[in-house]
Amino acid sequence: MYQDPKRVRTNKATVYLDEYEDAIITALANYLGVSKAEVMRQMMMKEAQETLGLDPVASVSTMPARDS
């Protein structure tokens, strides 16, 4: 079913947010039209890649490719 079984999202990380932080994430998710989990995943991965000095273009994207 999956080309790479390691890409299946089975690992869980819990993050506790206060009401203000949750409101910001919810607003951004609504604006982008995606789930809060996707917003937080993308933000986390971007920060991790920048911190580690990785090239985000060379990394495998979790967002599906758009057909032009």
Rank of each mutant, 00 (worst) to 15 (best):
E50A: 06
T51Q: 12
G33A: 10
A13P: 05
D18Y: 02
K46Q: 08
G53L: 12
K46S: 12
Y2T: 08
L28N: 12
A27E: 13
A23P: 08
Y31P: 07
K36V: 03
K46E: 11
T62L: 06
E50S: 04
Q42N: 14
R41W: 00
Y2R: 12
V39M: 02
Q3T: 10
D4M: 06
T26K: 09
R7G: 09
L54Q: 02
T10Q: 14
K36N: 10
T51M: 07
G33H: 05
G53P: 01
A23T: 08
Y16D: 09
A65N: 10
E19S: 10
M40F: 12
A23S: 09
I24T: 12
L32P: 13
S59P: 04
P64G: 01
T62G: 06
E50C: 00
Q49R: 14
R41Y: 00
D18W: 02
M40H: 06
A48E: 14
L52V: 06
L54T: 01
A65D: 13
D22P: 03
Q49I: 13
G53Q: 06
E21Y: 02
V8D: 11
T51L: 10
D55M: 00
D22W: 08
G33K: 03
V8T: 10
V39K: 00
E38T: 14
M45G: 00
E21G: 07
S59H: 05
I24C: 10
A13S: 14
R7W: 06
K36I: 06
R9S: 13
Q42F: 06
S59N: 05
D55R: 00
T10N: 14
T62H: 05
V15G: 05
E50D: 15
S35R: 02
D55W: 01
K46M: 04
A58Y: 07
G33D: 15
L17Q: 05
G33V: 08
L32D: 12
E47V: 08
V15E: 09
S35I: 04
L54E: 07
R7V: 09
G33Q: 08
T51Y: 08
A27I: 04
I25F: 03
S35F: 07
Y20T: 14
V57I: 11
M44F: 04
T62I: 06
T62Q: 10
M43Q: 15
R41S: 04
N30M: 06
I24P: 10
S59I: 03
V60W: 03
K46N: 12
V39L: 02
K36P: 06
L28W: 09
A27Q: 13
P56W: 01
V8F: 11
K12T: 15
A29I: 00
Q49A: 15
A37R: 02
E19V: 05
K12C: 12
K6P: 07
